[in-house]
Simulated assay, not measured.
Amino acid sequence: MWLQASCSLEFDIPVPTPFLLMLRPRSGTQQWVAREDYMLNPSVPVVEFTDQFGNLCQRLVSPVGWFAIHTTAVIEVADAADAAPGAPFVEVQCLPDSALPFLLPSRYCESDRFSQMAATITAGFLPGYNQCMAIVDYIRNTLQYAPGAGQAIISAAEVNQQPQAVCRDMAHLGIALCRALSIPARMVVGYLEGLMPMDLHAWFEAYVGGRWYTFDPTQDSLAGGRVAVAYGRDATDVAIYTQFGDPVELLSMYVSVDRLPGPPH
């Protein structure tokens, strides 16, 4: 399917402020970016680089006063996320080098604290994809998905003590449990068609059967219409914007995802 995904941010800037942005999706095996618009108002110089996870990042210094960022992308994506029950566990010595960072504990995914819990949740399931699904089912049945309920970023260990969670928190718990089983897992932030209320969304991917597969504890089925914008070890790596220095006020944020009848002309 073809989607048009947009994100608009408006800030009140008290002093010239350095920003690091992560707002550009990139083409890959699961999506093709056909067209993009990236507008800054007022316009300022931007330097773009690719981080260690392949994310397209932009550096700039915003001027004092009102400052707005607007991005729109037209992307071809899968109608449904791939599912692969029975996809096998990949032994650590056989993993690609690029997957190894996603085996280790990280700031918000303390996988070293979840070994026993992960083993209990996945007991009796085939190693690999089926274990990941058991983890997703556990999270979905244990935590109430409450979009918009959590502003502060909390770790997997803290999430595990809560009755409800936002998508980011549920992804953190899923990642920590997968890594506790030596299954590489990474966080994804992007867009999801039909998400209610509409916002940026977070899910996770796990490496089994020789490739990355999508898992999303917030959804009853593996819906397609996903646009990945950023990948990382946890929320630390995938912030769509990071500002440095004195705090700035985010005046508004608007996200939209619309299905298009066909490719752009």
Rank of each mutant, 00 (worst) to 15 (best):
D112P: 03
S43H: 11
Y138M: 07
F89I: 06
M253R: 15
N141R: 14
A152S: 11
Y129N: 06
T214W: 05
L20Q: 11
V229P: 05
S62M: 07
V15K: 13
R140N: 08
L95W: 01
Q93T: 12
V46W: 02
I240K: 00
I139W: 06
Q4V: 11
M187P: 01
G210H: 05
E10V: 12
Y213N: 00
V227D: 06
T71C: 11
A223D: 12
E48Y: 05
A87S: 14
Q144G: 10
T50R: 12
N55R: 05
A235I: 01
M22A: 14
W203S: 07
S221V: 13
L173K: 09
A81C: 14
N160T: 03
G128H: 02
L192T: 09
F215R: 03
I121F: 05
G224H: 09
G210R: 10
S98P: 00
V64C: 11
Q151V: 13
P264M: 01
D82Q: 13
T122C: 14
S155R: 07
I13G: 09
P264G: 05
F67Q: 07
P14R: 08
S62R: 01
S106C: 07
M22L: 07
G225I: 11
M117F: 03
Q93H: 12
V159F: 02
S182P: 01
C57K: 15
C167I: 07
G210T: 10
S111N: 04
I154P: 01
M1N: 09
V47M: 08
F89D: 05
Y38R: 13
A235S: 15
S221F: 09
P184M: 04
Y213R: 04
G128W: 05
G194A: 08
F125V: 04
E10R: 15
T72H: 03
P261Y: 00
L9K: 08
G128M: 03
P63T: 10
L40V: 08
A176K: 10
C132P: 08
F102A: 02
L251V: 15
Q144T: 14
A87H: 08
L250I: 02
V15I: 13
M170I: 03
V238A: 06
P96V: 02
V15P: 01
I153P: 02
N130W: 00
R168D: 10
V64Y: 02
A5S: 14
Y213P: 01
V74C: 06
G128Y: 03
Q219A: 15
D258V: 13
L195W: 05
L192A: 15
L222R: 13
T120S: 12
G232R: 03
D220A: 12
W212C: 03
A149Q: 10
G28T: 05
A239C: 12
M170D: 05
L104E: 13
F53A: 09
I69Q: 00
Y191H: 14
F19A: 04
A34V: 08
V74P: 00
A80S: 12
P16S: 13
E10L: 10
P184L: 04
Q58I: 00
R107E: 14
F215E: 00
M1S: 14
P247E: 06
P101C: 04
M1W: 06
E91P: 04
A157H: 11
Q164R: 13
P85I: 12
P105G: 09
R179N: 08
A180Y: 04
L104S: 09
V47W: 05
T142S: 14
P88E: 11
A34D: 13
N160W: 09
P101N: 04
L20D: 06
D37N: 10
S8T: 15
S8M: 07
V15Y: 09
R259Q: 15
A228K: 12
